[in-house]
Write a protein that binds this DNA or RNA. Structure first.
Lengths: 203, 203
DNA sequence: GAACGTACTGGACCGCCAGTCCAGTTGTCC
DNA sequence: GGACAACTGGACTGGCGGTCCAGTACGTTC
């Protein structure tokens, strides 16, 4: 589909430049301070190019996020246990949560930017956030599956949302900025384990 | 402090009008679609007045939120158990979470707007979100206290943040929009109870 | 290696919005 | 009823996300 015709050399070069410039800006400034024009300038291209390639602020952030999350996606699908298939669901869940904390810790700015982009754009389309944000969808699905495998009596879908929410809130992001990633991971492990051992629910 | 001199009659009238107009707009439109100018027009005042009274978009949303959360604050501080003092911490916690879900369910638009306002303004000041959002601070403190009372071995501060995060995420807000408040409350109860019964953590 | 069609480029441009400013108005106090 | 401060409101500013389209340079074809 995308390969019908290989991306033109200059287009590929600029795409990389834009993603790179975005990363650098995110490392240096708060996401809301970064305008698309700045990204374009930093990448040495025109604003039109940025929008041509990525459609919108949100598209750009999604592309970047997808790239950053790629390794985790692969580790989960085809890598070795406990992240990959093979280990018991409970272990995989804890390992996965740890890994997600890690990805997020190394991409706080991006996460915040994504949140901001989502919010900004939400008004224009009433699409489901999960559809709009494939990385989140994958994470959520994975957590929900593992949770359901271990505890079919729980509302796994929703618990998965809640666990993930704990990683994207403002307070959490603030914590990560202070280098407390391990503390967050620990808390999440406790929470996940507690959930796995929770007293069975009456209907 | 604020009472040194009672608010002038016209000022009070306009403040009410602005808050009311904001509520009505929030009920009808998505928060990001509502501009401060619209609020002003709907309230029948000039834009300058809105900013004079509330300082910024965020200030307006905070004022509205504080008003909406007032009943809960009072119920917790001086009301009857299980919400108010008197009941065991575990019961108070569950009751409080239910109450917060209720407040949030009845103010989804406002919550989303607050999130948006926070994000928008965050760049300008590097204040701690808790300071910036007193209602959140109160909720968080209360949950953390109750949690710590029952389970001193937990990272109550952080777990409280995580529980609250589950109420403010985009997915959650989406759920609430679909009238699934009870489902969310149930999931939170399960999670809180699980946490209260969690296996003790090794240091 | 030259000519051609097309995908890509970039910056001027648009509409919009948060927040500022200040001259005029109105309520309150003495 | 006069004086002073607080309040008011709308014109204005700066900046942003996103569009548009004329020009450019890439890859292809002969």
């Amino acid at each position: 589909m995308t390969q019908d015709r290989p991306e033109r050399a200059d287009a590929a070069r600029n795409r990389r430049a834009i993603l790179l410039a975005t990363e650098e800006l995110l490392a240096r400034y708060r996401p809301e301070q970064i305008s698309m024009e700045q990204v374009a300038t930093a990448a040495g291209v025109g604003k039109g190019t940025v929008f041509h390639r990525f459609g919108s602020r949100m598209g750009l952030m999604h592309a970047l996020m997808a790239e950053r999350a790629l390794a985790l996606t692969e580790a989960v699908s085809t890598g070795p246990p406990p992240l990959g298939p093979g280990a018991p669901a409970a272990e995989r869940l804890v390992a996965f949560l740890d890994a997600v904390v890690d990805v997020i810790a190394r991409n706080k700015g991006l996460l915040a930017a994504l949140g901001h982009a989502d919010t900004t754009v939400a008004a224009k389309s009433d699409e489901d956030p999960r559809t709009a944000h494939p990385v989140y969808g994958f994470w959520h699905g994975h957590i929900a599956d593992l949770l359901a495998a271990e505890r079919p009596d729980l509302d796994a879908e929703l618990q998965a949302h809640i666990l993930l929410a704990g990683l994207q809130s403002r307070s959490t992001l603030l914590l990560l900025e202070q280098g407390e990633a391990e503390r967050l991971a620990a808390a999440l492990r406790v929470l996940a384990r507690a959930l796995l051992h929770a007293p069975t629910q009456g209907g």
